[in-house]
Amino acid sequence: MELIEIKPLKSILLVEDNPAHVLITKEAFSEVKLENDNYDIEIIDVRDGIEALKLLSKFKSQGSLPDLILIDINIPLLNGLDLLKKIKSHKHYKRIPSIIITNGSRIHEIEDAYKRYANAFIIKPFRYDDFLEMIQVMKLFWFEYATIPINTNGRLNKNEG
């Protein structure tokens, strides 16, 4: 008989309209996965800000919000910074760490993002190796060291110190 271990699932909402970037991000997360990771990562992608809000509302009604939100700044319908503002002014969504990711940046965007309570602002590295390293460190920081609250049903993700 084979024993199948069920690992806890960390879910990431990726708001990105460029299918190539979605693919690369998913690839990167599976590439930095380690044998002994005690959790699996699920990436759910949506293409624009409106879709992101709809999905969050659906998740909320099911009692399981994502652990992390990655938002590309240049998404259609509701841009990344406006989506961020909606998330951070919502009673339940605001607790989800939300990271703005961009290909290049203007200084005012960095300030704007933090003033709208982005948890972090990342300029996407140009080289794939650097991008992989960024995903690796981001994963370590948020899922191994930081404590992220799960919002809806009182469940709380804690990392053992």
Binding site: A120, F121, V137, M138, F141
Partner: peptide, 14 residues
């Protein structure tokens, strides 16, 4: 890890 993430990968207002 914290310093690597926040000083090398994240952009912060300067």
């Amino acid at each position: 890890i914290m310093l690597k993430f926040w000083m090398e990968m994240v952009s912060i207002p300067d």
